[in-house]
Design a binder for these strands. Structure first.
Lengths: 289, 289
DNA sequence: GAATATATGAAATTTTTATAACATAAACGG
DNA sequence: CCGTTTATGTTATAAAAATTTCATATATTC
C-alpha cells in the first residue's frame, strides 16, 4: 500500500497550499529546520512556529500520524534510511494533467545540458578565472535577465565585471575602451538583435575575446565569437524558454566557483561585512534629538 | 572558538576502548543507528542496548551532557548543521561533476514542476488578466533576475506593469500609492530579505493582493501573501539555483498568454510597429550634409 | 579469598510531555 | 449583518520520560 517511500517533507510540500494560516506557519518552520524541529517536544515546536501545542498536534494528526510520538518515530526512521542511501532516493513524480508544458520545459533543460560541451565550460572557466581581464556582459531584449544572472554570479566571485549599457550611445562610449585583454559576453537568441551582432563584430575586431550564449540555430554573432554556448529555447508556445540558457549559466558559475573557491570564500566574507556595515550606517544616520 | 564542529559520534569512537561492557554496548548501538537511537527515549535506547536506563544516563553524563534532553538537543543541532549550513555542504571536486550537477539542475526543475499547483497557476492567471489592477514586481538580491523575467513577459502582454524600486527610499514613495486594486509580486528565497518581508506586510496591510514566489522553506512573507508559489532552489553547490523559479514564471507567463491571446497578439503587433518607427527615427536623425 | 571499589539494575519519584476538554476567536455563507 | 462552521488557544489531566535512590552484582586489589 505505502509502496512510495514518501518523505514526510514532500507530503507537506504537496499540500501546503490547502493549509490554514497556522498550519502554514508550522509547515514553514518544519521544512526550514527539517527534520530537527520535529524531534523536539510539541511545546518547543509550537513555540518556534508561534502557535499553540494543540495546533501542532492537530497538524500532525491531519498528516495521518497517530500522535506526536508516532510522528517523531517516522522522522527517526527517515533519518535511519537516509543513512543507508544518502540522497539517492528515487523521486517518483506525480503527474498532473496540466503539466504538459512542464514536460516541455524539462525537455529544454535536459537536451541543453545533454548537448553541453563540458570541455568548453572548462575553457571558459579558465578564461573567466583570469582576473586581469575585464568581463563585459550584454544581453538582448529577452535574454537580459539571464545576462544579469551571470553578472550577479561573476560579480560575487571576482573584480572587473561590468554590464554593457543597453542604449547604443552609452555602449559605444564603453566599447571604445575595450582591447585584447577584455572579454565580451553576449546573449543572443532568435529574433536576433542587430545591435548585439554588431557589438560582437566590433569587439572581435578590437581583439576582445567574445563569449556568446545563443540558441541552437546560432546567432550570426557566432561567426566572430571565440566561444559559443548553445541552448535549447524552443517550446510549443510562442515564447521561447530561457531555462536552458539559465542552466548553462549556472553550470559555468558553479565551475568557476569551484576553481576560485579559495579566493571566493574570503571575498564573500568581506562583502558580507561591508553589507552589515552599510546597513548599520543607514540606521545610525538619524541625527540625535 | 568552536572551530572544530565536534561530532558526538567521533567523540564516542575516540574513547570507546576505555569503556565498560555496558557502555560499549550503548556506544555500539548508538553508532550503528546514529543519530536516530539517541532521539528516542532513554528507556527505548536502553532496551535496544540491552542495558538499563540509568546506565545510559550515566553514559551520556560521562560524555559531558547535563542530562538526556541536553544530549538530544545536541544531536538535533548536529542534524540542523549538517543539512542547512551552506558552508558545510559537501563539495564534490570531481572532474565529471559537471554532468552530475546537470542532473541536479534537472532535478530542481522536475520537482518544482511536479509540486506546482496548477490550480494556483489558474488563479494567478485570472488575477493577472484583470487589466484594471496594476502589477508591481520586486525581486531580492539574487532573484531580481527572475523578477525581471516575469516583468518582461507581463509587460508584453498588458499595461500597468511596474517594477518596484530596489532602494528603500524610492520604494516607500511608491508603496504609499498602492491600494486594494493593486497587485504586488514578490520574490524571496533563502537568505530571506527583511525588506521584502516588510514590503509584503505593508502591501498586505494596504489591501493589495500579494503574490509570492519563494523556495520550499517559504519566506515569512508567505504569512501575509494571498498566493504563494514554491520552487526548489537547493543543490549540492553553495549557490542556489533559479531554474525552478524560472520554470514557474514561464509557466505562469504562458498560461496568461493563452488566456489573453486575443488581446496580446494585436498588442505585440503594435509594439513591433512602434519599435521599427523608433529605430527609423534614430537613423534619420542625422542632419543632412 | 576477603575487603573495597566500581558498575549495574529495579523501583520510586520528580519532571516533562502529550493529549483531551472546553472556551474563544476567526472565517464563512446566506 | 447574522448565525453557523471552522480554527485556534487555554486550562486541566493523563501518560511518559527522566532522574534519583538504593540494593545488588561484578570486578579489583592486596
Amino acid at each position: 500500500m505505502d509502496a512510495a517511500p514518501t518523505v514526510i517533507a514532500d507530503r507537506i510540500s504537496a499540500i501546503v497550499n490547502s493549509m490554514t494560516r497556522s498550519e502554514k506557519r508550522i509547515a514553514r518552520v518544519l521544512l526550514a529546520r527539517y527534520p530537527a524541529v520535529g524531534l523536539e517536544s510539541v511545546t518547543e515546536f509550537a513555540k518556534q512556529a508561534e502557535v499553540s501545542a494543540p495546533t501542532v498536534l492537530r497538524f500532525i494528526a491531519k498528516l495521518g500520524f497517530g500522535g506526536y510520538p508516532d510522528f517523531r518515530r517516522a522522522l527517526r526512521e527517515e533519518i535511519d534510511e537516509s543513512q543507508l542511501n544518502p540522497l539517492t532516493k528515487p523521486r517518483i513524480e506525480n503527474i498532473d494533467a496540466g503539466t504538459e508544458y512542464g514536460n516541455e520545459l524539462l525537455g529544454v533543460v535536459r537536451s541543453t545540458l545533454a548537448e553541453l560541451d563540458m570541455g568548453l565550460v572548462e575553457k571558459v572557466t579558465e578564461l573567466f578565472s583570469d582576473e586581469r581581464r575585464s568581463i563585459n556582459i550584454l544581453g538582448g531584449d529577452l535574454t537580459t535577465t539571464v545576462a544579469s544572472h551571470l553578472f550577479f554570479h561573476l560579480r560575487k566571485m571576482r573584480r572587473l565585471v561590468f554590464s554593457l549599457p543597453a542604449t547604443i550611445q552609452e555602449r559605444a562610449d564603453r566599447i571604445v575602451d575595450l582591447g585584447k585583454r577584455d572579454i565580451v559576453v553576449l546573449f543572443d537568441i532568435r529574433r536576433y538583435q542587430a545591435d548585439i551582432i554588431k557589438t560582437a563584430r566590433i569587439a572581435s575586431q578590437k581583439g576582445c575575446t567574445v563569449v556568446l550564449f545563443t540558441d541552437q540555430w546560432m546567432s550570426e554573432a557566432s561567426e566572430v565569437a571565440t566561444h559559443v554556448f548553445r541552448a535549447r529555447v524552443g517550446t510549443s508556445s510562442p515564447w521561447d524558454s530561457l531555462l536552458g540558457l539559465n542552466a548553462i549559466v549556472e553550470t559555468v558559475a558553479l565551475s568557476l566557483d569551484r576553481r576560485l573557491w579559495s579566493m571566493v570564500r574570503p571575498r564573500l566574507e568581506v562583502m558580507e561585512r561591508y553589507k552589515v556595515d552599510l546597513l548599520d550606517q543607514e540606521t545610525t544616520s538619524t541625527p540625535p534629538e
